[in-house]
């Protein structure tokens, strides 16, 4: 029993961990920038977006991995896209039904998960070639790596822009809001410096 498990899942841990740091979708692959920048005005929105994306990524990776042998090569991209669009519709309707306020804040960026390059990229590069369990671990790792960066970016912008994190006040009433951080320009600049910091830390760790 253990043997079978080892054989099938020998690298599963590695597939999971690589999404967190070594092949982090945002810092290393620089994919899926639109939702990353757009919804991270507050940590909570970043978290919701990360969860929605992880859900779509995991479900479509499972589906694509299951049908990988029956889909003809020429129509694979179209097939993947339709599968992704279906799961995005599910996620969107779920958010609308259960968390209406958040869904309203995220606006058109939930449906835009369809064209998030991370998801299509994982289907094309991984799930369409690997087994179900491996694809699942890979998708989960990538999704969590993505969500972690979103929460980090959202927290930084929320702290500087509003003086709160997850709506929890951390500064006194004397805190002057740094408005730029809540605006698009703040998103670009913060992410730019975060990527710079990641590269620097990565180099320090290697040497």
């Amino acid at each position: 029993m253990k043997n079978i498990c080892d054989k099938n899942c020998g690298n599963c841990g590695r597939e999971f961990y690589k999404g967190l740091w070594r092949e982090n979708p945002i810092f290393v692959q620089v994919l899926g920038m639109c939702p990353t920048l757009a919804v991270t005005t507050k940590a909570l929105f970043g978290f919701s977006m990360g969860m929605a994306t992880t859900f779509v990524l995991v479900c479509s990776s499972l589906a694509v991995s299951c049908i990988r042998k029956v889909v003809p090569q020429q129509v694979r991209i179209a097939t993947f896209t339709v599968i992704i669009a279906t799961f995005v519709t599910c996620a969107d309707y779920f958010l609308k039904a259960k968390f209406y306020a958040i869904s309203k804040e995220l606006g058109p960026y939930v449906p835009l998960i369809v064209v998030n390059c991370i998801i299509l990229g994982r289907q094309e590069a991984f799930a369409s070639k690997q087994g179900i369990l491996k694809s699942f671990m890979d998708a989960l790792g990538m999704g969590i790596g993505f969500s972690a960066v979103l929460v980090l970016l959202g927290s930084i912008r929320e702290i500087l822009g509003f003086g709160t994190v997850f709506y929890y006040k951390i500064f006194g009433s004397g805190f002057e809001h740094w408005v730029i951080m809540a605006l698009p320009a703040g998103a670009f600049i913060t992410l730019g410096f975060l990527i710079g910091f990641f590269n620097w830390a990565n180099k320090k760790l290697k040497t």
Binding site: L183, P184, A185, F188, I189, L191, G192, F193, G196, F198
Partner: peptide, 21 residues
């Protein structure tokens, strides 16, 4: 060095966004 590539591009985009404001 760490900012080369995507990092500096994003920071420039931020400044551009400011000017477009």
């Amino acid at each position: 060095r760490p900012l080369q590539g995507a990092g500096i591009t994003l920071i420039i985009a931020g400044i551009l966004a400011l000017s477009f404001m």
